[in-house]
Amino acid sequence: MADALICLALALAALMATAVVLTRGTVRQAIVLSGYGLVLGLLFLILQAPDVAMSQIGVGTVLLPLIVVLALHATRRHRDTGHRDTGHRGAEKETRR
Rank of each mutant, 00 (worst) to 15 (best):
D3S: 15
D3H: 15
A4I: 14
A4N: 12
L5H: 04
L5K: 05
L5G: 00
L5F: 08
I6K: 05
C7Q: 14
L8T: 09
A9I: 02
A11I: 11
A11G: 10
L12S: 11
A13Q: 09
A13W: 07
A13F: 13
A13D: 09
A14G: 06
M16N: 07
T18N: 05
T18Y: 12
T18Q: 07
T18R: 07
T18S: 11
A19Q: 06
A19G: 01
V20G: 07
V20C: 11
V20L: 08
V21K: 10
L22E: 05
L22T: 07
T23N: 03
R24C: 11
G25E: 03
G25W: 02
T26A: 14
T26C: 11
V27G: 01
V27C: 01
R28W: 13
R28E: 12
R28H: 13
Q29E: 10
Q29F: 11
Q29I: 06
Q29R: 15
A30Y: 02
A30W: 03
I31H: 01
V32L: 07
V32K: 03
L33Q: 01
S34N: 03
G35D: 00
G37D: 01
V39Q: 01
V39M: 06
L40C: 07
G41M: 04
L42A: 12
L42H: 03
L43H: 02
L43R: 01
F44A: 05
F44V: 00
L45H: 06
L47G: 00
Q48H: 13
Q48E: 14
A49G: 04
A49W: 04
P50N: 07
D51L: 15
V52A: 10
V52E: 05
M54C: 08
M54T: 11
S55L: 13
Q56M: 10
I57A: 07
I57Y: 04
G58L: 11
G58H: 06
G58M: 08
V59P: 02
T61H: 05
V62W: 03
V62K: 04
V62Y: 06
L63V: 13
L63H: 05
P65R: 03
P65E: 02
L66Q: 06
I67A: 14
I67V: 15
V69C: 04
L70M: 14
L70K: 09
A71K: 00
A71V: 12
L72W: 01
H73Q: 09
A74K: 03
A74S: 09
T75N: 05
R76E: 15
R76F: 15
R79K: 08
R79A: 14
R79C: 07
T81Y: 11
T81H: 11
T81K: 08
T81G: 00
G82E: 03
G82I: 08
G82V: 07
D85P: 00
T86Y: 09
T86I: 12
G87Y: 15
G87N: 09
R89N: 00
G90F: 10
A91I: 12
E92N: 06
K93Y: 11
K93I: 14
E94P: 00
E94Q: 14
E94S: 13
T95I: 12
T95Q: 10
R96Y: 12
R96M: 13
R96C: 09
R96H: 12
